[in-house]
Design a binder for these strands. Structure first.
Length: 829
RNA sequence: GCCCUGGUGGCGGAAUCGGUAGACGCGUCGGACUUAAAAUCCGGUUGGAGUUAAAUCCAGUGCCAGUUCAAGUCUGGCCCAGGGCACCA
C-alpha cells in the first residue's frame, strides 16, 4: 500500500470509475425494499455554499448507509432553476437567462461530483427545461379543472423592486423574502390555488408525521391558524339609506356577547359607505385614505396606539336588545373573519385600549368569583362565571360559549364557525423566467385552458431583457397573440408565469419517473417510490416549500394521480453553517469556498468535518482548525493501514472467537462495540457527530493494539478483521479513502457494495466491568469485576474493598443497592 | 402576549432505563524525536483547597424548591438565549 495519502489523486480516480461503472444508478427491478433519500434541490445560483455541502453530505451518508443495509436506494438530484436571479442577471447584461442558468448548473454539477455524492444522475431534473415545465403546466391545468386554480381580483402583496406580486408566505415581517423591500398592497387580478380547501386536513395530518420535528409542525400549525367560534349577525337600526342591513362578526368569545358596547369594521370593509351617516362621511373618508397610505408594517405594528372614527350608525344586540355604535378602526383586518369585530372592552385587551382612548362604555360580563368589580385596570381575559348575561348568568364561561352560539343558531342570527388564518396561494408572477400559465383569454369565450396536446406553452425567446419595471415577456412580438381553442377566434395568452414554488412542489414525484415523455409520472412508479423516506433540508422552508408540497400531494391524490397523502415521511432540518458565530454570507465576508477545501484537503475531509462537530439539526460553526484536525485524522487512518499493509488480508478475517489471547479478545470486543454504537447512532436521528467520535475511538484502540502485538497469524487475522470493519463503517463518510484502501488491500469488489457490519451481542461488551462503589450516593471506589458476577458477589466485592471497609467502620449500614453490572450504593448512618 | 427549541469546562459537544458528569475533538501546557522546523508520538488540562509530588477533600450541568439510596436526566415554579406566530377578534 502506498505510504502517503493523496486525496486529490484518489478522489478524481474513483469519481471517474464510479461514473463509468454506473455505480449509483437505481435498479428499477429489485427484490430489495425501497428507500428514498432526498435533499432539497438547489437553486443554481452559481456556486455551492457550505450549507449545500452540509445538506448533501448528510443525505449522501444516509443513502450509502441504507444501501449497505440492503435497501434499494433512490438518491436523486436536480435544479430548482426558474426564478428571479437568472432574470436579473439577464437584464443586467441583456443576455439569455437560460444560458446563465445552464452555465451555473454545469459548474455546480462538477462541484457535486467532486464532493463524491452518490446520485443517480440519470434522474436529474431542471425545472426550467421544457420536458419538466410542460408537466408543471399540465398539473396546473388539472388543478384548474378540479376548481383548485382560479383567478380573482384581490388586494395582493406587491414588491416594487422585484416588479411582481408575492404569496403571503413570501412576505416576511412586511418585507419581500427575496430582496427585503417593503411590500405594498395592490388591487390586482391574479391566479390563486385553493390551498384553503385543505386547511383542515393539512393541520390534522401533521399528526401523521412523527418523523417531523415539533418545531416545523407547530410552525405549520400556527401558519394555518385554526380557531373555533361563531358568526353573529347584527342588525343595523339606522342605516342612512333606510336599507335593512346586517353586519356579521366573527368571534372566538361568544361568551362575552352580552358585554358588547360597540362594533368595529375595517377601513376597507365593503359596506362601509352604506354604514356611514352624512355627518361622519368626511371624517371616515379621511381615516380610510390615511389607512391606505400606511405600509403593512406600520399598519400591523402591535404597539401602535389604536385609532378610529365613528360611522354614526348603530346596531342592536339581539341577545339583550342593547343598542351600540359602529366605528371603523384599522385594528380590524378586512382579510380575516368577516372584517368586522364585536368589541367587548372588559374582556379583550385591544378593545379595552380603544374604549379607554375614546371613552366608550364598558360592561363586565365575566367575573372570576361572581363579584363585579368596578374600575378595571385592564381587560379580564381569564376564565370565570357569567354575570349581566340574562339567562346565562352563573354559567361557567367555557360552557356558556356553546350554549350562546346555540341560542343564536336557534333564533336565526348566528352560526358555529371555524376560521383559518391560511389564505389561498397566489401563484401568478409578473416575471419572465418561470413556467407560463397555460391559459388564453378570448373575447367571446373568456378564460380558456390551453389544450393539453398544445403543451408546453413555451417561453418566448424574442424578448428584450433590458426593459425596466415590467415583465420582459410583454416585449415579445409573437407570444401574446393566439387563437381561442374553443371558437378559433383571436385570443391573448396569459403573460404571467408561475411562482417557482409551483415547480418545486412536485419535483420529488418526477424523480420516480424522470424521463417519462408521455406523462408527468407513472402512477405505479410514484406509488412505489414515494413517500420520501428521508427528506433533508433547511428550516427556512418550514412553511413555504413544505406546506405547498403537502398541499400538492393531497390535491394530486384527489386528481387520482397518486395514492398517498403525505410526501415526506421523515424530515431532517439541518442547522445553518456559521463562521465566527454568524451565518456565512458574502456581505459579512465570512464565507468558505468548498472548492478551496476540496483542493487543499479533499472531499473526504470536507465530508468528515461538516458532520463531525454538531448534530445535524443544530447550527454548525466552521473552523479552519477543525478542518485541519479532520485531515490529520484521515492521514492517521491511512497510516494505520499503510504501515501495516503486509499484515492485512481482507479476505481472511475469520477467527476462533473464544480462544483468542486476552489482547486480541479485547480488540474484537472493541470492534463489536463500535459496530453496535455506530449503527445505533445512525439509526437514532443520524447523530453523525458521535459516529465520528467513535471512528476516532476505534482507530485509537487499534493503534493501541498494534503496540502490543507480536504479529502472530492470529494477530494478523484479528487486525484484518478490525481494519475491514473500520473501512466498512467509515465508507459512507470517507467515500474515496475507504475505496482506495479497500482496493489496495485486495478487497473484493467495491467497499460501497459491502454489507453493513453486524455485531454479536455477546461480543459487544467487555469481559470485565468497572464496579462503581458509592457510599450515600457518592463515588468512593472503583473495582474491576467479572462481567458475570451476581448481585450478591458484587455486594461482597464492594464490602471487601479496603477503602470501603475503612469508610463504613463504626457506621450502621441502612441498606445496600446493587445495580447489576454497574454499581453498588451503600447507605450508612 | 402565545408556541417551539435550547442552556453542561476556554470552545464544539458526549452521557439508552435516573446509576462513574465532561466521551471524542479543538485549543492550550509539558515531554519525546530533530542541528532546527514541519510532520508524528506520549502525557496533563472543570473550578477550588491541599501536597515537594501524590493521596485526599469540597463545589459543580441557567436559578429556586421537590421526589429518590442516587437527578444533567423526573416533578413544580422561575430566569436567560435563539426561532416561529401575532391588533387573527
Amino acid at each position: 500500500m502506498k505510504e502517503a495519502y493523496f486525496p486529490q489523486e484518489i478522489e478524481k480516480k474513483w469519481q471517474k470509475t464510479w461514473e463509468e461503472t454506473g455505480a449509483f444508478k437505481t435498479p428499477e427491478n429489485s427484490e430489495k425494499p425501497k428507500y428514498y433519500a432526498l435533499s432539497m434541490f438547489p437553486y443554481p445560483s452559481g456556486k455551492l455554499h457550505m450549507g449545500h455541502v452540509r445538506n448533501y453530505t448528510i443525505t449522501d451518508v444516509i443513502a450509502r448507509y441504507k444501501r449497505a443495509q440492503g435497501f434499494n436506494v433512490l438518491h436523486p438530484i436536480g435544479w430548482d432553476s426558474f426564478g428571479l436571479p437568472a432574470e436579473n442577471a439577464a437584464m443586467k447584461h441583456n443576455a439569455d437567462p437560460e444560458k446563465w442558468t445552464d452555465e451555473n448548473i454545469s459548474y455546480m454539477k462538477g462541484q457535486l461530483k467532486r464532493l463524491g455524492l452518490s446520485y443517480d444522475w440519470d434522474r436529474e431534473v431542471a425545472t426550467c427545461k421544457e420536458d419538466y415545465y410542460k408537466w408543471t403546466q399540465w398539473l396546473f391545468l388539472q388543478l384548474y379543472k378540479k376548481g383548485l386554480a382560479y383567478k380573482k381580483e384581490a388586494a395582493v402583496n406587491w414588491c416594487d423592486n422585484c416588479a411582481t406580486v408575492l404569496a403571503n408566505e413570501q412576505v416576511i415581517d412586511g418585507k419581500c423574502w427575496r430582496c427585503d423591500s417593503v411590500v405594498e398592497k395592490k388591487y390586482l387580478s391574479q391566479w390563486f390555488l385553493k390551498i384553503t380547501d385543505y386547511a383542515e386536513v393539512l393541520l390534522e395530518d401533521l399528526d401523521k408525521l412523527p418523523g417531523w420535528g415539533d418545531n416545523v409542525k407547530t410552525m405549520q400549525a400556527n401558519w394555518i391558524g385554526k380557531s373555533q367560534g361563531a358568526i353573529f349577525n347584527f342588525e343595523v337600526i339606522d342605516a342612512p339609506s333606510g336599507e335593512k342591513l346586517t353586519v356579521p362578526v366573527y368571534t372566538t368569545r361568544p361568551d362575552t356577547v352580552y358585554g358588547i358596547t360597540y362594533l368595529v369594521v375595517a377601513p376597507e370593509y365593503k359596506d362601509i359607505e352604506k354604514l356611514t351617516t352624512e355627518e361622519n362621511k368626511q371624517a371616515v373618508e379621511d381615516y380610510r385614505a390615511n389607512a391606505r397610505k400606511m405600509t403593512e408594517i406600520e399598519r400591523l405594528s402591535t404597539d401602535r396606539v389604536k385609532t378610529g372614527v365613528p360611522l354614526g350608525t348603530h346596531c342592536r344586540n339581539p341577545f339583550n336588545g342593547e343598542v351600540f355604535p359602529l366605528w371603523t378602526a384599522d385594528y380590524a383586518l378586512v382579510e380575516y373573519g368577516t372584517g368586522a369585530v364585536m368589541a367587548v372592552p372588559t374582556h379583550d385587551t385591544r378593545d379595552f385600549d380603544f374604549a379607554k382612548k375614546y371613552n366608550l362604555p364598558m360592561k363586565i360580563v365575566i367575573s372570576k368569583d361572581g363579584n363585579i368589580e368596578n374600575n378595571l385596570a385592564e381587560a379580564y381575559t381569564e376564565e370565570g362565571i357569567l354575570v349581566n348575561s340574562g339567562e346565562f348568568n352563573g354559567m361557567k364561561n367555557t360552557e356558556a360559549k356553546k350554549a350562546i352560539i346555540q341560542k343564536a343558531v336557534d333564533e336565526g342570527f348566528g352560526e358555529f364557525k371555524t376560521q383559518y388564518r391560511l389564505r389561498d396561494w397566489l401563484v401568478s408572477r409578473q416575471r419572465y423566467w418561470g413556467a407560463p400559465i397555460p391559459v388564453v383569454y378570448c373575447e367571446k369565450c373568456g378564460i380558456q385552458p390551453v389544450p393539453e396536446d398544445q403543451l408546453p406553452v413555451k417561453l418566448p425567446t424574442d424578448v428584450d431583457f433590458s426593459v425596466v419595471g415590467k415583465s420582459p415577456i410583454l416585449t415579445s412580438p409573437t407570444f401574446q397573440d393566439t387563437v381561442c381553442p374553443v371558437c378559433g377566434g383571436p385570443a391573448k395568452r396569459e403573460t404571467d408565469t408561475m411562482d417557482t414554488f409551483m415547480c418545486s412542489s412536485w419535483y420529488y414525484l418526477r424523480y420516480a419517473d424522470a424521463r417519462n415523455n408521455e406523462k408527468c409520472f407513472d402512477k405505479d412508479k410514484v406509488n412505489k417510490w414515494l413517500p420520501v423516506d428521508q427528506y433533508v433540508g433547511g428550516i427556512e422552508h418550514a412553511i413555504l416549500h413544505l406546506l405547498y408540497s403537502r398541499f400538492f400531494t393531497k390535491a394530486l391524490r384527489d386528481c387520482s394521480l397518486l395514492d398517498f397523502d403525505e410526501p415526506f415521511k421523515n424530515l431532517l432540518t439541518q442547522g445553518m453553517v456559521l463562521k465566527d458565530g454568524s451565518k456565512m454570507s458574502k456581505s459579512k465576508g465570512n464565507t468558505v469556498d468548498p472548492d478551496e477545501i476540496f483542493e487543499n484537503y479533499g472531499a473526504d475531509t470536507a465530508r468528515l468535518f461538516i458532520l463531525s462537530d454538531s448534530p445535524p439539526a443544530r447550527d454548525f460553526d466552521w473552523s479552519d482548525a477543525g478542518v485541519e484536525g479532520c485531515y490529520k485524522f484521515l492521514n492517521r487512518v491511512w497510516r494505520l493501514m499503510s504501515t501495516n499493509s503486509d499484515k492485512i488480508d481482507l479476505n481472511n478475517t475469520v477467527m476462533n472467537v473464544g480462544k483468542l489471547t486476552k489482547v486480541n479478545d479485547d480488540l474484537v470486543r472493541i470492534v463489536h462495540m463500535a459496530i453496535k454504537s455506530i449503527t445505533n447512532d445512525i439509526s437514532n436521528d443520524f447523530q453523525f457527530n458521535t459516529v465520528i467520535s467513535k471512528y476516532r475511538e476505534l482507530v485509537n484502540a487499534i493503534y493501541d493494539w498494534t503496540s502490543k502485538t507480536q504479529w502472530t497469524d492470529e494477530d494478523k487475522t484479528v487486525f484484518s478483521f478490525a481494519i475491514k470493519s473500520l473501512l466498512i463503517l467509515m465508507a459512507p463518510v470517507a467515500v474515496h479513502l475507504t475505496e482506495e484502501a479497500w482496493s489496495q488491500l485486495g478487497g473484493k469488489g467495491s467497499v460501497h457494495e459491502q454489507e453493513w457490519c453486524k455485531w454479536d451481542e455477546n461480543l459487544a461488551k467487555m469481559s470485565s466491568i468497572t464496579l462503581v462503589v458509592q457510599i450515600n450516593g457518592k463515588v468512593k471506589d472503583k473495582i474491576e469485576a467479572d462481567e458475570s458476577s451476581s448481585q450478591e458477589e458484587l455486594k461482597s466485592i464492594a464490602l471487601s474493598s479496603e477503602k470501603i471497609k475503612e469508610l463504613i467502620s463504626g457506621k450502621e449500614i441502612i441498606k445496600t443497592i446493587v445495580v447489576p453490572k454497574k454499581l453498588v450504593n451503600i447507605v450508612i448512618k
